[in-house]
Design a protein around this nucleic acid. Structure first.
Lengths: 245, 245
DNA sequence: ACTGCGGGCTGATCGACATCAGTCCTCGAC
DNA sequence: GTCGAGGACTGATGTCGATCAGCCCGCAGT
């Protein structure tokens, strides 16, 4: 069972917040059906696509985004191992956004029927999954607030801190930093900035001695100052001990 | 039963998308516990508050928002009759946002336990509620995209169109227009603009012959042109006939 | 009847960020 | 070794929208 937790970022993530029994872990494992891989840059799901599948991301990074008719793109969120892809839109029967792998990725397919079945049989698992969905939504809300009311530097700092916190949960990051495959163009599309301005802001943060993003690696040079600068609240990510222990 | 649908904006909204049986409607009715009223401007739920209740809005308008430490406010969404208040944050046990009535409002309290109980007993009701939650999240995402990548006028047009579509679902609006109690200050906080600029943008739209917002009433002067101008897609609000009929 | 206040409205000014137009560097293809 | 592509990076210029300052109107309170 420890093996499962170690190999399954999703189990690890959920386990941080809801203590799951062996039976529940097995049920979770049962959701992982067919394993598939996708190459970077080729969409898994297109905006407007009907009745697509949902996935659990095993390895690699992806992003969900929307395109406007003038060609502008807004990235809504990035997904890292352990995150669901397209969970929300399966109930809407029509995806309102696209999902693109940022790197080559590995996923497992999840059938809606299996998920609902698992929910009715193990309510605690349902709670755990709904908790994860709530957390995802809270992150989107925080992202919205950032774009609406924070300036470019605060936005960048907050975003990279949040990403770090999420990666820490699955053992891929720490307060020191983390490996990050995002280009400045991707950051721009996520933060509502131009790539040029992303570059300037990263320089400011670097020269301010708070954070260095270089060669695919984010290094927190002064974590505490950065947290204060970005007004980073991790209430929704932080949980001292599992609920429903 | 028709009476229930007519008096319950929530039943009316859900009924548009999932055909509910009499038993399901009764179950939905059973969720409405204690009825309460709140006056405009006094928060129902505070950012950081633990284990607060969830509510269904019966009459009046509310908004959910976050405050940053510099005092800036970002309104995430407005709630109209039939919407849930604080549904997402009950699973997080700590509200990450505040909720304030825009007008005097009437609500009924919903107990989490009752909701989960209803879910296990009537799966279709669960689907309907999850669908509603997904739709709410889709609106937040659309809002995020608007703030990130649309200019002020498009943002305003899109926002007022979406509000109109939502109000139409509960019989409080049409393609002609709707009564709207929002001040320009509230619009500013929602759209990430200043009140001054909101005023200018409203004037532009009025002079462009697309939309008139005056004396608490939004009038669509040229609905089709406005839809085109705002790139308004209603895929996530639109549903030709109920799913799960 | 005066006063204060909240909301709508407007002009002038300023700053943050986009856009345009590049350079430099690395890496893989041929 | 050259070519081309993609990503990081920079300076000059322009614009969108914020901020400041102030006016007008309708309304509630004394």
């Amino acid at each position: 069972m420890d093996r499962i937790i170690e190999n399954r970022p999703l189990a690890r993530k959920l386990g941080t917040f809801v203590a799951l029994s062996e039976a529940e872990l097995r049920m979770l494992e049962g959701l992982h059906k067919q394993r598939r891989t996708f190459v970077a840059g080729r969409d898994l799901v297109h905006q407007g696509q009907a009745d697509h599948a949902a996935y659990i991301l095993i390895s690699g990074w992806a992003c969900s985004y929307k395109i406007l008719q003038d060609g502008e793109r807004q990235i809504v969120d990035f997904q890292i191992p352990g995150d669901f892809l397209g969970l929300r839109s399966i109930l809407l029967h029509l995806s309102d956004h696209s999902i693109e792998p940022v790197t080559d990725i590995e996923v497992t397919e999840v059938h809606v029927s299996d998920l609902l079945d698992a929910f009715s049989r193990t309510p605690r698992l349902a709670t755990a999954v709904l908790w994860a969905a709530s957390r995802d939504e809270a992150m989107v809300v925080e992202h919205l607030v950032g774009i609406g009311r924070r300036d470019a530097a605060e936005r960048m700092a907050h975003f990279l801190l949040e990403l770090g916190a999420r990666l820490s949960l699955i053992g891929m990051g720490s307060k020191a930093g983390y490996a990050c495959p995002l280009t400045q163009y991707l950051l721009a599309d996520a933060l509502g900035l131009s790539a040029v301005h992303v570059n300037r802001v990263l320089r400011e943060l670097r020269e301010g001695g708070m954070l260095t993003f270089r060669d695919g690696f984010v290094k927190f040079d002064d974590y505490d100052r950065l947290v204060k600068f970005a007004d980073f609240e991790l209430t929704y990510l932080d949980q001292v001990e599992p609920l429903l222990a």
